[in-house]
Design a protein around this nucleic acid. Structure first.
Lengths: 192, 192
DNA sequence: GTCTATAATGGGATAGAC
DNA sequence: GTCTATCCCATTATAGAC
């Protein structure tokens, strides 16, 4: 119970992110966020200097948690088991509180590239993640599979996708992601 | 040389799409598009009734080409070779003139879901594509892999990705995509 | 087919009271 | 910490001349 300070700040982050994921960053106005929170626009500006700062704060939170995973990953020897465990830890992040922001990142690439590129703490970290996920850094196919494994995890945690065609539960996404980072032709639990 | 009518219309589509992909749909203004074409905003309104109509026209073009591929696909027996050939034909679309619009779709999901959902001719067609790409419709993992195979193709055709970390050439993307729709544990040309 | 000019709206952001 | 009121600006879109 140490630092339970600004509860409102977190409510803003949560609702804003919800709307950003649903409608996109640019299409979501501060007026709309304020309405959903039943406060005024000016109140938002007390907690965040700009609209961009809201997203920036969310990216920072993710970066922090990602650092923990990366710290673990970099301490491991480079072998299949480590990569698979890394995927599992990333899956935990995606299935936990960071699902929405990761989905936001995946579906708002243009906004990230333009508005947030200069202050996005995730670009270097994602690079590191992909590095750890590939066995042979010289194999471009492996690089692509590493990227796709993360896409798979996010797809598995998108409620909208689950309802639509091709929707899959998180366990299946994890299975597919694990397969993508496993050596070709050598997949442990491949059923059917 | 049959119908070479409005050249300007196509120039608008091309430049607009270029900017939409780079910066996102909402962040790109008609003023900016007009400036790049060295015409005025009003000129754009002669060719397209609204900003949305520009995107809609691009989606229609893709839908048309996709129908040709779907027509072929639906006429095939359902076997591995057909699925792989389907991927190759989709890869041709992505590597050809439809790369940008497919990338736009992948990176602007919120805009598509909100602004264009009611008039998006691609949703039903994508469903059909994924249907054709899975052998066992009851296998959710296969469904996900089918989706990922298209993501792979688009990643392989994103110049920006190619420069960055994890960037891959189209041939590699095709290879990975083919692998994703091939039966597990039975991959023809898996090297290394 | 393209222009100038302008309407109409909504956005992010600030000032200052409470 | 939240409010009211307002500023300033960019945007989409239209009217009407050329």
């Amino acid at each position: 119970m140490a630092g339970r300070r600004s509860d409102t700040r977190e409510r803003i982050q949560q609702i804003a992110l919800e709307l950003f994921v649903e409608q996109g960053y640019e299409k979501t106005s501060l007026r709309e966020i304020a309405e959903r929170l039943d406060v005024t626009k000016a109140a938002l500006y007390y907690h965040f200097r700009t609209k961009e700062d809201i997203v920036a704060s969310l990216l920072d939170d993710l970066a922090e948690s990602l650092d923990e995973v990366l710290e673990w990953g970099k301490a491991q020897e480079d072998h299949v088991g480590a990569r698979r465990e890394l995927i599992r830890r990333l899956a935990e992040l995606v299935e936990g509180k960071f699902g929405p922001i990761m989905r936001f990142m995946q579906e708002n690439q243009p906004a990230l590239k333009t508005t947030f590129h200069e202050r996005n703490p995730l670009v270097s970290r994602m690079k590191d993640v992909f590095q750890l996920l590939v066995a042979d850094e010289q194999d471009p196919a492996a690089q692509l599979r590493a990227r796709l494994s993360l896409v798979a995890l996010v797809f598995g945690n998108s409620p909208q996708f689950r309802d639509e065609n091709g929707g899959v539960p998180p366990e299946v996404a994890l299975e597919v992601a694990l397969d993508l980072v496993s050596p070709r032709g050598h997949r442990p639990g491949a059923a059917t």
